[in-house]
Design a binder for these strands. Structure first.
Lengths: 204, 204
DNA sequence: GAACAATGTTAACAATGTCAACATTAAAGA
DNA sequence: TCTTTAATGTTGACATTGTTAACATTGTTC
């Protein structure tokens, strides 16, 4: 277990900060946000109860880092879906990228609700620099591309991120809490929502 | 203080359950979700540390009730805004009702972010019956009215709740965390979002 | 190689969730 | 009315956790 190793010596772990965040992600994903504790995390990682305090000011800062890591996972999932698209028509490609990015966002909310929860819970108290690539950044790239390909207006380019993110984020949040019925229903609902996003952007 | 009184006798509080929920709302609103504790709540309410256990199975169940109470507050705010509308044209009235309901929802997220947070945090573990009137119910009433007035299609009546709620809920959540800049900007953004909802519903 | 910074450990305290045992009151049935 | 019982509240106790202080070990720098 990489989370258990202490390298290079037995005393110094070597990558404790990263291990703690990784263990935090695992813990939150499998047992929920409330189960996150500095002590248990330290022990699982193979160090003493208070070792984490050498890397995080307090529990809130640790949570903020796990939150950021969750958003990074989400960002990677979005990029992975975008990379998998097979489409030669540049216009269709631009639209497909927005669609897949949004669908990946929704899938993340459905499949990993606990990570989605911590990803977007008030995490700005301990100030963090925006991760790269962030979901917000990816969305803006998609809209940039749509604008370059003349598929949306300048005004829509300006308001689009707000509209698209609100809709997708809102649905993902509701779906992650099973507000929207079964998974099968949610799949269909996701299509409705994504189609509605495209309509809102008034794609030409 | 109603939360402190023990009636009718000194031993029995009389309305402890309601007092605890009310105190919980206050506590969450002013000091955040994490500050909620059974012990402190009991003491604030004027009873012993463990009195709350006669009314709530555990902390999670107490949270679920505070969550439900928060949604009820939101529902009342939406209804209050709807009731304040002065509009004689039935069609304009129906549209205004949806607008005001959505705007109240967004305002709730902005002005009372801590209540908004607990209102829509995974609260379904301890099963609860839907409160009355729920935000979801109010939204559906608005769409019913739009449909009766022939302002939206049957299909939109079906998909509308999902679309409208996703958009408004998503934006409210983002706004409650100041993702969208200053309050002034948020006011403008709210208009953009609500206009986008109306466009998505393809009002005739 | 010595001084210093970084990292990890141990011990301790307060706050909290929770349970068990007990006390008091209200409610219901004789 | 009186007794029994359920509902409600209290006290004491224990485990877990966040957090700090004091101390120990290791890596780094001059």
């Amino acid at each position: 277990m990489s989370t258990l190793k202490k390298s290079p010596t037995e005393f110094h772990h070597g990558e404790l900060r990263e291990s703690l965040i990784t263990a935090g992600i695992k813990q939150v994903e499998s047992h929920g946000l409330n189960s996150l504790s500095l002590r248990q995390l330290s022990i699982v990682t193979g160090v003493s109860q208070t070792a984490a305090y050498r890397h995080f000011e307090d529990l809130e800062h640790l949570k903020a880092e796990v939150s950021k890591a969750s958003r990074e996972i989400l960002g990677k999932m979005m990029l992975a879906r975008i990379a998998r698209i097979d489409e030669s028509d540049p216009r269709k490609l631009a639209i497909a990228r927005l669609w897949e990015a949004g669908d990946a966002y929704i899938e993340f909310g459905m499949r990993r609700p606990n990570l989605f929860e911590i990803a977007f819970i008030s995490y700005d108290s301990p100030k963090l620099k925006p991760e790269d690539p962030s979901p917000w950044g990816i969305l803006n790239s998609c809209l940039d591309e749509l604008y370059e390909k003349k598929l949306i207006s300048a005004e829509t380019r300006k308001d689009g991120p707000l509209i698209a993110w609100s809709m997708v984020h809102g649905f993902a949040g509701l779906a992650s809490q099973r507000f929207t019925g079964t998974v099968r229903e949610t799949k269909l609902s996701a299509e409705i929502v994504l189609n509605s996003v495209l309509r809102s952007l008034k794609i030409r």
